[in-house]
Structure formats: structure tokens, C-alpha cells
Write a protein that binds this DNA or RNA. Sequence first.
DNA 1: AATATACACTTATATAGAGAAGTTGTCAAG
DNA 2: CTTGACAACTTCTCTATATAAGTGTATATT
Lengths: 254, 254
Amino acid sequence: MAKEGPAPPLNSDQIDRKSAQPAYAQLADIIRQQIAEGIFRPGDQLPSEAQLCRRFGISPMTVRRSINLLIDQGVVSTAQGRGTFVKPLELSTANFDLQELEDLFTNSSNGDIKLIDVRIVSADERAARKLGIQEGDPTIYIRRLFTRDKQPIFYHRAYLIYDPTRPIVEAEMDVTSLQGLFAHADNALLKRGQLNIDTALMNPEEAELLESPYPAAAFLLEHIFYDFNDHPISWGWFLFRSDHLRFSTQVGLK
Amino acid sequence: MAKEGPAPPLNSDQIDRKSAQPAYAQLADIIRQQIAEGIFRPGDQLPSEAQLCRRFGISPMTVRRSINLLIDQGVVSTAQGRGTFVKPLELSTANFDLQELEDLFTNSSNGDIKLIDVRIVSADERAARKLGIQEGDPTIYIRRLFTRDKQPIFYHRAYLIYDPTRPIVEAEMDVTSLQGLFAHADNALLKRGQLNIDTALMNPEEAELLESPYPAAAFLLEHIFYDFNDHPISWGWFLFRSDHLRFSTQVGLK
DNA sequence: AATATACACTTATATAGAGAAGTTGTCAAG
DNA sequence: CTTGACAACTTCTCTATATAAGTGTATATT
């Protein structure tokens, strides 16, 4: 099984040293392109790193970096001592992100947040459990509606920890501001967040707020944010009309 | 603003050269840990690469690789000529994957796929558009139900291209097998897939199949798979009871 | 005072190797 | 036929260095 005689089929492109794009990125693109064209099929072994060095006239570290890029992108996988192989398509590698949700904020100057309700309420059992506080402890309860072009997009409810002894109002306002979660603002007090997506039937009140027919299904995006002491700061959920937010992604190449 | 005198606060850990874990991964872990502990906060500038080299006694390329790892993980960002900075939490970086869906197949020996219907049907307008064929062209139409522990989990409908002149039955069966999409099988004929998640109200028939109350909301996962000629091979959608499949993720550290 | 230049930083890319470690096939010894 | 040593491959990690390029500051010039 010695792959000696036939030259590796990577002769269609060359590395352009004058290009603004670095060599390692060019090589990664070339290999990805060859895979997309079907020259290398899932399961096939790629030319070895040494072969790629000779073929493209670049050093081992640069080839290595290209391969690592492709590994990170899930295009190939490597096995020490054996070689580099093209990965087959896997449905489970599909990733859905919230970019579209961010775009709603950043790209829409005609977006508007209408505050429906803000008040201090005692935490019920569920809110207390989620926020790691005692039942009956005070929390800030917020309800608001995001509209765009006069159309309601989503409805947001959230509970925020309220600690009168340490009035970090400003910080809480950051969390409250919503934009801070999307914009690259310095919401430096948040360490991590837990997010869940669920579906739900809107109740009549929600359907009316979102001007949706009733009954209707909606996305429910639940969130809990934690500070750097791993204490919950806020718990809440967004409710979307699914015709205004969609989760889409691609698996595989191109 | 010269950061000269005070030693960088990375003194709690060292690189263990005898460890099985490579140096670059150890350094990335150390930095990530320091950020999680709040030693470095979002917006803070990390020690420069040269400083890290001296501090940990490793070469620039190794430090570089650690930083690149952290960039890929979305933990830090770099700006040429200025420095490396800790990224604040961003909601839009949240990624939801289908791992849980894969687990349903691989980890459940007590799972079962019940074929409800397989037959050749003429493509209607929508199916023809999605599959890039003519209205009226024959397609293979499949309906099936996945159950686990006698509980219905999801309902799957799909149209597959049917080409009598080139009977690639085996290949089509691969696509049909479902498992091939999850297992690392050599479904080498698939190049890419387009996936959309939506919500939907189940119709009475679907609710009955999924043994769900009616009306109820459900996840709808639509998929189109393409071959290496960029021709659609299949179009269909999964319908999940949302209490059997949840999308969860974390943003931020730990 | 305003502008231009030089310098000291930073990250970014690339080179040319070295050795470690895993895999596979060959070939000789048993 | 089986086993074991070995060679030849592969990827993996890391060093040490060089050059390029962006940023900001201090200094010199106009």
C-alpha cells in the first residue's frame, strides 16, 4: 500500500506568497476545496505532512497549522502514526447559534423595547431555587416587549437578585440593559450563563402581546446568568414568535 | 502606563514537563483558570507573549498556540500591536448542538424505529422545489416513528430523490438508515446538509402518534442533504416532543 | 504649537529543524 | 505458522529564531 508513484492530486493550486492571506490559511482552503470537489472523499487519507511540505514548498509547522485549522473546523481528523483522514458528515456536529438574535439588536435602528412592568416581588419557590436564594426573598421582576417596525418580536421576563445591603444598582442595570449581553459591552461581572431552548404554547396573554394567533407555538429561551462567585444574578426567559426567529445551520462543506 | 514593576499574577501554577498533557494545553488551562477565578476580568489585558515565555519558560510558538486555542474557544481576543484581552460574555456566542439527538441513537439499545409508510409518490410543488426536481417527478416518501422504552420520541418524514435510470439503491438506503447520519459510518456520498429548527403546533394525527396532549407545541427539525454535485438527495423533517429533546448550552467559563 | 520621525512595544507569520510516540509492514528466528 | 525485532512511515510537540506589521509614546523638527 505504498503511495509512491502517483503524485498527490493537489496540483491545481499553489500558495501565493504575495497574497495577503497567510500560507497556512491558503493551504487549508485548498484542501477544503479539494474535499468539496470530491477529489478527497470522506474516509480518504490525505497526503502526509511531509508530502504537503514538498508539494507546496512550505515548512512543517505551517502545514501543521493548516491541518489543525481543518481539525478545529471538523473537516478532517488525525490519528498519530496513521495519517490524516477526511471526516464524514455527521448530523450531530450541527451547531445553532444566536447570531440572528444579536442581529435583531445591532442591525435594527427601528427596534424598540417597551417596559411593561418593573417591580420588587418576593421570590416564589421556583424563582428561589433557580436563583439560589430563600423563598420570599425580594427580587426585581421585569417584563418587557421588543418590537421592530411596530411588530412585536419577543417578550422577556426576568428575575434579578435584589440585595439591599450591597446596592450594585449600576451593575444590575448592566444586566438589565439587554444590549449589554449582545454588544461587546464590558459586562465584566458576568462569568457564565446557562441557556435552554424549549417550545411552548403561548397563553392568551402572551399571544395578545405578540399579536399572534391563538393557539400558537413559540420558542422559549431560558437563561440564568452567574457572577464570578458562581452565584446566580438573573433568571428569565424570552418568548419568540417562531416566524421571527429561526435557527439555521449547515453541516459539511460550503 | 508602563506595566513594568509588578510581576504578572500568574504565579500559582507551573508547566509540568513530565505531564502527558502538552505544554500549550497546560498554559491555556492555567490562563482559563485565572480568568474563571476573576484574576483576569473581561476587558483586562493579559501578559504579553514575551512575558508568558519568560514566566513559564517556554518558547514563543508554544505560547502562541495556547493563545490561539483560547481565541478559538472564544475566551480571549487579540489585537495586533496592542495586546491580548479577555472577552466579555456574549449571548450570541451560544451554540446549541444535536449531541443529545445523537445520544438517543447510540446510547439507547431499547430504541426502535417503526416504519409507518414507504412508497413512491409524485413530488408536489414544495417537494419539487426543495429537491430541485420537476413537479410530478417520482420520489421515495418515508414516514417513521422512533420510540424508546415504548415511548414515542420523534416522528420523521422524508422525501428521497428517486432516479430509476441510475438505481443507487444502496446509497439511498444509507441515507435512509438514519443511523448513518449519526454513527461515523461512511456515508461518503453526502457533502453537506441544511438544517432548520422551527416550532410547530402538532396536528391531531401527529399528537396521536407521539402520544401527546392536543394541542401541543413541538420542535420541527427540517433537513436537506446534498451530494457532491450539490444536488439535493433528501428533504424531510423530524418532529419532537419538546419534553424529549432539549437544547441546552453554556456561555462563558466553566 | 503642530507635525513628522524614531523607537519600543505588541501580535502575526514563517522557517528549519529535533525528538517523541504511535502504526504498519517486512523479515528473520523460533 | 507464529512471534518478535526492526525499519519506515505517520502525526505530535517543542525549540530557537527571523521577519513583518500594527500601535502608542516620546522626541525632534518645522
